[in-house]
């Protein structure tokens, strides 16, 4: 089975810290990276970083799953634009459970199934409790 790489792209340090927080629970993970876009950053620089990471993955015969925060935001625009030249998966609305599902299941789920599982877990974790 092909190795799978997780690339998180968010506003600010949200993605980087999210990855760190998940690694606090699951231990350090290989084949995962997070990029952040801050005020005053050039989106084209971010786009080039994303291109480079995906191209390296392709060379190493790894699949890339891109997680972005807000549909319609710049990180999401960059992630979706990468679909033009690359056979990748993009999921919006990144959260902790999506990452946990990815790291737990990536070694034995096919790409399509893994993406579905990640989305389901991401949504399933949202529950309401009240008195």
């Amino acid at each position: 089975m092909k190795k799978k790489f997780l690339l998180i792209i968010t506003h600010g340090n949200f993605g980087k810290e999210l990855l760190k927080s998940v690694e606090m629970i699951m231990g350090e993970q290989e084949d995962a990276a997070a990029l952040g876009l801050n005020l005053g950053d050039d989106v084209d620089v971010l786009r080039a970083d994303v291109e480079r990471i995906i191209a390296e993955n392709e060379k190493a015969d790894k699949d890339t799953i891109v997680l972005v925060d807000l549909l319609g935001g710049s990180p999401s625009n960059v992630g979706l634009y990468a679909l033009k030249n690359h056979d990748i998966k993009v999921i919006t609305g990144v959260n902790m459970l999506m990452l946990i599902e990815f790291f737990s299941s990536r070694e034995f789920e096919e790409l399509e199934d893994l993406v579905e599982k990640m989305i389901n877990s991401g949504v399933e974790g949202i529950k309401k409790f009240q008195k």
Partner: peptide, 11 residues
């Protein structure tokens, strides 16, 4: 806005 359509514009 050199990011054109993005979070700030939409939200």
């Amino acid at each position: 806005d050199d990011r054109l359509i993005h979070g700030q514009v939409m939200t």
